[in-house]
Nucleic acid binder design. Structure first.
Length: 547
RNA sequence: GAGGGCGUAGCUCAGUGGUAGAGCGACACGUUGCCAACGUGUAGGUCGAGGGUUCAAGCCCCUUCGCCCUCUCCA
């Protein structure tokens, strides 16, 4: 990964944001090649998801898939985020273990579940299980566990650290009262030295070491700022943590002002912001990032078919732009992993060098039901119902009576920065047998440099021929990427530079070109060469770039 | 937020208190003319930042910023 990061900087793909001021954690800038690579990725998404959705495939209803674009604001009305659940859900209280050498960090609302899964709690539970009712016998069992398994699994439990004191307290606190050891919270609390009262009021031991936890602290996962000329906290607004809500909020307008009919999708690309606890892994977890989200609205009865449709297509799509290998997987979420609103979610995941052998999420395809539209209808009082004139019982005149419903929504939400990073990681290849061992096998469709034109020598009229060819190619392909033109230095170095930049084809003008109007085409991935007529170059490139 | 590692030329790094270094890269000129080639030369550094100790700090101490790894979260 270090080699990839070094190449990204060396060739101008990705720089650290504000680098000359020491950088700023969780923010990254794209250099010239990175900016173009990401634009190509965004354009490919726009083309294949909105302009020609799913490559013109027919959906589960047998019709062509219809989608429209939208561009909504980063700052929305604060109530949008109350309705969406982000104000509540994105302010998770965190607790931290205070024991030296542990200091683990947990989400407070996950603690109960983590305690149940905790190794030492399970061991204790197993030991105590059969004798859970006996008074003296139970104390003996716990004491025995504390001096053996407890010592090994949870060194910071009170019963391990101060056995005598812990046992005294246990006897005093837990010999009577309204609690039961079949509730692991009390069982775990007892050996950690917590009183019944403390456990009842929510105090818990560390699931890892059994030590004391800090008070819950608020972690602010949404960035906020203040609108208006006067700095008044009453005017607090948030930077969006996802683009999706802008789409839901404008759903009604899109339906009312365009001729879309259910089923259809609304796509939106743009920046989102999350104040990540720990930005990490290069651009993978950034605090400012770009999403490409489609919200696809359909009738509840068809929602599962559409969910499968988009899940499968999104997987195919990522393959089509170069993530074709074993590093790409589709993973269906387990039931207990689903968000509170979701009835089904799968992730397109890529095996990044820093996640290997595990995978990191590129895109989530979520079946969101009608959660979001319903939430906004409740909070805003605006009707989100759709009147579907193709449904309902048939009328005598042959028309349909119609049906009102709040549409269900399938959300394929891709991370463009993660996508760009995955493309780079997948493309990065090292072959020590090549003169230029490091190169990027970028798919021609996303490659930021589409072609390079080199005069073999910087004299004898060759530069002029090269320049003319470069101008021609630029006119035809310049919208989708750079056409490089370089006459300096020996040809090997120029090829090597293009290899690192991921340029798929180099065209070289030599002395023969002057005689027979042919040029050399060099293929980046194989290094092989062939001669073609100079007037066939743009046709060759058109075919290779796929339009 | 806690722990660990790191920060010296564009890049990779050497430099254990006494004149700021190497290789690669960049640039110029020359030779060669299809794969990071050769020769000559040039430019490039407040040693991440701030403070302290010392006659003297890249090196020792304190603070701070950033990166990487681990813990939590996620597109």
């Amino acid at each position: 990964m270090d080699a990839i990061m070094a190449l990204c900087k060396r060739r101008g793909f990705i720089y650290q944001a504000s680098e000359i001021y020491g950088g700023i954690n969780g923010f990254w800038d794209y250099g010239p090649l990175g900016a173009q690579l990401k634009k190509n990725l965004r354009d490919a998404w726009w083309q294949d998801m909105i302009m020609n959705p799913a490559w013109g495939k027919r959906g589960p209803d047998g019709e062509k898939v219809r989608c429209v674009p939208l561009e909504t604001c980063i700052i929305q009305h604060p109530k949008v985020w109350e309705a969406s659940g982000h104000v509540a859900g994105f302010n998770d209280p965190m607790v931290q273990c205070t024991e030296e050498g542990c200091n683990k960090l947990f989400r407070a609302d996950h603690l109960d579940a983590m305690l149940k899964e905790s190794e030492w709690v399970r061991s204790l539970h197993d030991a105590v299980g059969p004798t859970a009712h006996g008074g003296k016998e139970l104390l003996d069992t716990i004491a025995k566990w504390g001096s053996k398994s407890g010592k090994k699994l949870a060194p910071n439990l009170l019963i391990v650290r101060n056995f005598k004191f812990a046992m005294q307290q246990l006897e005093r606190e837990y010999s009577f009262g309204n609690f039961t050891f079949s509730d692991v919270r009390y069982l775990a609390g007892a050996v950690a030295g917590l009183s019944v009262h403390q456990v009842s009021s929510g105090v818990k031991p560390c699931p890892v070491c059994g030590g004391m936890l800090s008070e819950p602290r608020q972690f602010n996962l949404m960035f906020d700022t203040i609108t208006g000329a006067v700095r008044d906290p009453a005017n607090k607004v948030y930077l969006r943590p996802e683009t999706a809500q802008g789409i839901f909020v404008q759903f009604k307008n899109v339906v009312d002002t365009t001729r879309v009919r259910i089923p259809f999708g609304i796509g939106n690309t743009g920046r989102s912001f999350r104040n990540e606890v720990t930005p990490r892994n290069f651009t993978f977890r950034s605090r400012e990032f770009e999403q490409a989200e489609l919200e696809f609205f359909c009738h509840p009865d068809e929602s599962h078919a559409w969910y499968k449709f988009w899940r499968d297509f999104r997987m195919e799509w990522w393959k089509s732009i170069g993530l074709a290998g074993e590093n790409l997987i589709l993973r269906e979420h387990d039931k207990d992993e689903l968000s509170h609103y979701s009835v089904g979610t799968s992730d397109v995941e890529y095996r990044f060098p820093f996640t290997a052998p595990g995978f990191g999420e590129l895109e989530g395809i979520a079946h969101r039901g009608n959660y979001d539209l319903t939430q906004h209808q409740t909070h805003s009082k605006a009707k989100m119902e759709y009147f579907d004139t193709t449904r309902g019982e048939t009328l005598p005149n042959g028309g349909k009576k119609g049906e009102r419903y709040i549409p269900h929504c399938i959300e394929p939400a891709a991370g463009l920065d993660r996508g760009a990073l995955a493309l780079i990681c997948e493309a990065y290849t090292v072959d020590p047998s090549r003169p230029s061992p490091e190169f990027l096998k970028l798919h021609p469709r996303v490659a930021p440099i589409k072609a390079a034109i080199f005069p073999l020598m910087d004299k004898d009229g060759l530069p002029e021929i090269a320049e003319k060819l470069a101008d021609e190619l630029f006119a035809k392909f310049g919208r989708s990427g750079f056409i490089e033109h370089d006459a300096k230095q020996n040809i090997g170095k120029r090829y090597a530079r293009m290899d690192e930049a991921g340029c798929p084809y180099c065209f070289t003008i030599d002395a023969d070109t002057v005689k027979d109007q042919t040029v050399t085409v060099r293929d980046r991935d194989t290094g092989s060469q062939q001669r073609i007529a100079i007037d066939k170059v743009s046709g060759f490139l058109l075919e290779k770039l796929g339009g």
